[in-house]
Amino acid sequence: TYVQALFDFDPQEDGELGFRRGDFIHVMDNSDPNWWKGACHGQTGMFPRNYVTPVN
């Protein structure tokens, strides 16, 4: 499953995934309602669910 970033996200903690608005992120785990795990630009980490939108 892929999502697209609605906003820039700069990691604040180790293990978070940084990205820029418009980036596509491969979702690896969406079991938590607020923080998902994904991959983008060769990196993996957690990111806030409300920063992304589903891609059809």
Rank of each mutant, 00 (worst) to 15 (best):
R49T: 09
N56R: 15
G45R: 03
N30F: 09
G15S: 12
H26D: 12
N50Q: 15
Y51E: 01
L6D: 10
D10T: 14
Y2W: 08
G22M: 04
Q4C: 05
R49V: 10
V3F: 15
P54M: 08
G18I: 08
F19Y: 02
G38A: 02
F47G: 02
R49L: 05
W35H: 08
L6M: 14
R21E: 15
D29T: 04
R21M: 11
F7C: 14
H26L: 13
I25L: 05
A39R: 14
T1S: 09
G42T: 04
F19M: 04
Y51M: 14
K37Q: 14
N34T: 15
M46G: 05
H41V: 03
R20P: 01
D32G: 11
G45I: 03
A5V: 00
T44Y: 12
Q4L: 09
T1A: 06
Y51N: 05
T44E: 14
M46E: 06
W35A: 04
V55K: 12
K37L: 11
D29K: 04
R20E: 12
N34L: 12
F24W: 13
T53K: 15
Q43C: 14
R49G: 06
F9Y: 13
V27F: 02
T53W: 05
T53S: 13
F9N: 05
P54K: 15
D14M: 10
D8Y: 01
S31T: 14
F9L: 08
M46T: 13
S31C: 07
D23S: 04
Q43H: 15
N30G: 10
L17E: 01
H26Y: 12
H41S: 08
P54S: 09
P48D: 05
D23K: 00
R20I: 07
R21S: 11
G38C: 02
V55R: 08
E16P: 02
R21G: 07
G18D: 11
T44I: 11
V3T: 05
D29F: 02
D29G: 05
G42A: 06
Q12A: 12
P33R: 09
G22T: 03
D8M: 00
L17M: 08
T44M: 09
D8K: 03
E13N: 09
F47T: 00
K37M: 12
N50Y: 08
G38Y: 00
Q12W: 07
E16C: 15
